[in-house]
Lab assay of single mutants.
Amino acid sequence: DETGKFLVLSLYDYQEKSPREVTMKKGDILTLLNSTNKDWWKVEVNGRQGFVPAAYVKFL
């Protein structure tokens, strides 16, 4: 199980638009929880879990 094993870097600021999403700032290091959807990845940032656009992050 690779859940929570990968870190990704936020390339852009992102403001959550729904309760299922999370806000991140450019340069944030996020824990990747799920990347099965090619468009939206589930991450943990600042103690919160939610989705961010996959195009806004990259693997470290």
Rank of each mutant, 00 (worst) to 15 (best):
G27F: 04
D28Q: 13
E21G: 11
V52L: 04
V43E: 00
M24K: 00
Y14H: 05
W40D: 01
L7P: 04
V45H: 13
G50T: 02
S10E: 01
E2H: 14
S35W: 15
A55R: 14
Y14R: 02
E21Y: 06
L33K: 04
K25A: 09
N37A: 08
E16D: 04
E44M: 08
K58V: 15
L32H: 01
F59R: 11
V52R: 01
F59D: 07
G4V: 13
I29E: 03
S35V: 09
K26W: 04
L32S: 01
V43I: 08
P53V: 04
V45S: 11
Q15V: 15
T3F: 13
V57S: 00
S35C: 15
R48P: 02
K42Y: 15
K25R: 12
K38G: 09
T31C: 12
K26P: 04
V22Q: 02
K17H: 08
D13G: 05
G4N: 13
V8D: 00
L33H: 05
Q49R: 10
E21M: 04
R48C: 06
L9F: 09
V8E: 00
T3A: 13
W41R: 00
L9K: 09
K38L: 09
K42P: 01
S10I: 06
K42G: 05
M24N: 01
E2C: 15
K38I: 09
R20H: 15
T23W: 04
Y14C: 05
L32I: 07
L60G: 04
Y56N: 06
K58C: 15
K38R: 12
W41Y: 10
A54H: 03
R20N: 15
L60H: 09
V45L: 15
V57R: 00
G47M: 04
D13H: 05
P19R: 08
Q49E: 12
G47E: 05
F51C: 11
K58H: 10
L32V: 12
R48W: 04
W41V: 08
L30A: 08
M24L: 09
T23L: 03
M24E: 00
N37L: 09
E2V: 14
D1S: 14
L11R: 05
D28H: 06
F6R: 15
V45W: 06
R48A: 07
E21A: 06
L60Y: 12
E16C: 12
F51I: 06
L9Y: 11
N34G: 07
Y12S: 10
D39R: 12
V45E: 01
V8M: 09
P19T: 10
I29F: 06
V22D: 00
S10R: 04
K42A: 08
M24A: 01
N37T: 06
V22P: 01
V8W: 07
V57M: 05
L30T: 01
S35D: 11
R20Q: 14
F6P: 13
T36G: 10
G50V: 03
I29W: 05
Q15T: 14
Y12L: 10
L32K: 00
E16N: 07
T23I: 04
E21F: 06
T36E: 14
V43L: 02
P53F: 04
N34H: 06
Y56K: 07
Q15G: 07
A55S: 14
S35L: 08
D13V: 03
R48I: 09
L33S: 02
R20S: 14
G27T: 01
V52I: 10
Q49L: 07
D1W: 13
Y12C: 15
V8I: 09
M24Q: 01
P19E: 12
I29L: 09
L7A: 07
F51V: 07
K5G: 11
Y56R: 04
E16P: 14
K26N: 05
L30W: 02
V57C: 13
L7D: 03
W40C: 07
W41E: 00
P19L: 09
T31R: 12
T23H: 04
I29Y: 06
S10A: 15
K5V: 13
V22W: 04
V45Q: 08
L9V: 15
S18A: 09
G27A: 01
N37K: 07
A54D: 01
L33I: 15
S10C: 15
F59C: 15
K17G: 08
E21N: 05
N46A: 10
D39S: 10
T3Y: 13
D39H: 14
D1Y: 12
G47F: 04
S35K: 11
W41G: 00
V45C: 09
M24I: 15
Q49F: 07
V43C: 04
E44V: 07
L33E: 01
K38S: 12
G50H: 01
T3K: 13
K17A: 11
P53C: 06
Y14T: 01
V8K: 01
L33V: 11
G27C: 08
D13L: 03
E2P: 13
S10G: 09
L11E: 04
E44T: 06
W40T: 01
E44Q: 09
G50M: 02
L60M: 11
S10M: 05
T31L: 15
K25D: 03
R48L: 07
Q15P: 08
E2R: 11
K38T: 10
G27R: 02
Q49Y: 08
W41K: 01
